[in-house]
Write a protein that binds this DNA or RNA. Structure first.
Lengths: 197, 197
DNA sequence: GTCTATACACCGATAGAC
DNA sequence: GTCTATCGGTGTATAGAC
């Protein structure tokens, strides 16, 4: 399974090209449907209708491909979060993004992969820190706008929102719903008190 | 990678025996240290000093071994939770169990595996529901004991505790700590208001 | 109970032709 | 850019001896 000393100066395909995106798209689908044990260069190639060799023309190693997959995804999500802060109901939109944008299955797979791929772990940390910073700023601004104070300071509220959104999403996929309605009621109450409408 | 139609009446080793436990212990270590892509019959055998063939004497398939591994773990944790409800500070102990007993990496691996192993998914659902029921009962009892009411009803508090405990554990392992102190302050405040001391 | 030996499939990564 | 062909290695699971 392990192979060292990859040639460092191989001829490579251009990032951002059509095949490059198609491979990452295919990789995400496989990760979602079959898990990372099935995420292989052969399956990616088969799924998008090219030969396996081509995957190694666009990505130096499979680990590189995985890191790039997470990077592309997190950049998109950070962009959406930043755009949400400028809207009429920033907190409501940010909450929606947290709950719906990213599949709980995908998160589990990336977390598991991050334990053994150093480059991915760095990307995950960067994403968590950046998204939390955006959330904290949005929460603080919303509280100030309505002259409210919260018993829990903004950084605490941010981590609370993130963890609950992930847990709800995960359990919903499993078919467990006990306690969900009660939590949603509290969250909706908070949102409408800070962002009327 | 996939092999169907396993012989249904093979001679099998006894569950609960020394080797049986040793194999599950080894499997947990591998899952923690290297992830589920490295969780193979060969590595388990190598780790505990037996030949690969023996793993298939104690477990019909690798999926069976994985389900058994989760089952053994969850039974232990449910037992600890039930015992905690009878102690002097039930909520404090339950919180400690949630935060420390189960590694966030292990959870990620099991969640990822549960997406593709039906039997494991059923075990995970059963564990979540049972542990939540224990928590809800303990929270309700503690509130009643101190004649307190909470804006968030017990089922909501239970899911909140679970999700926050998991998120804190995961981020701590990654080295992210922003917002953690704020959340812990709120939780400790709640705990000491319900369970003085 | 535990072993050797083996079938058969799949994987990462590369060499080098076109 | 995309391909065929290939290396060395790992995986699940079984047959059958001791």
């Amino acid at each position: 399974m392990k192979q060292d000393q990859v040639k460092p100066d191989r001829r490579m395909g251009p990032p951002g090209s059509e095949n490059w995106h198609a491979m990452l798209d295919g990789a995400e689908d496989i990760l979602l449907e079959e898990g990372h044990a099935a995420l292989t260069s052969r399956r990616i190639a088969e799924r998008i209708g090219v030969k396996q060799r081509l995957v190694y023309y666009y990505f130096r190693t499979m680990d590189d491909l995985i890191v790039e997959m997470f990077h592309r995804r997190s950049e998109r999500e950070l962009k959406r979060l930043r755009e949400a802060t400028g809207s009429a109901h920033p907190l409501g939109e940010i909450w929606e993004i947290c709950v719906h944008s990213t599949d709980a299955r995908l998160i589990s797979e990336f977390m598991a992969l991050a334990s053994r791929i150093e480059g991915l772990r760095a990307e995950v940390i960067r994403f968590i820190e950046e998204s939390r910073a955006i959330q904290v700023e949005a929460i603080a601004a919303a509280l100030e706008r309505t002259s409210q104070t919260s018993r829990i300071p903004p950084p605490g509220l941010a981590i609370l929102a993130t963890s609950v959104a992930l847990a709800l999403s995960r359990e919903e996929q499993l078919g467990v719903t006990s306690g969900h309605a009660e939590i949603m009621a509290v969250i909706n109450e908070f949102l409408s008190s800070v962002e009327p409408g």
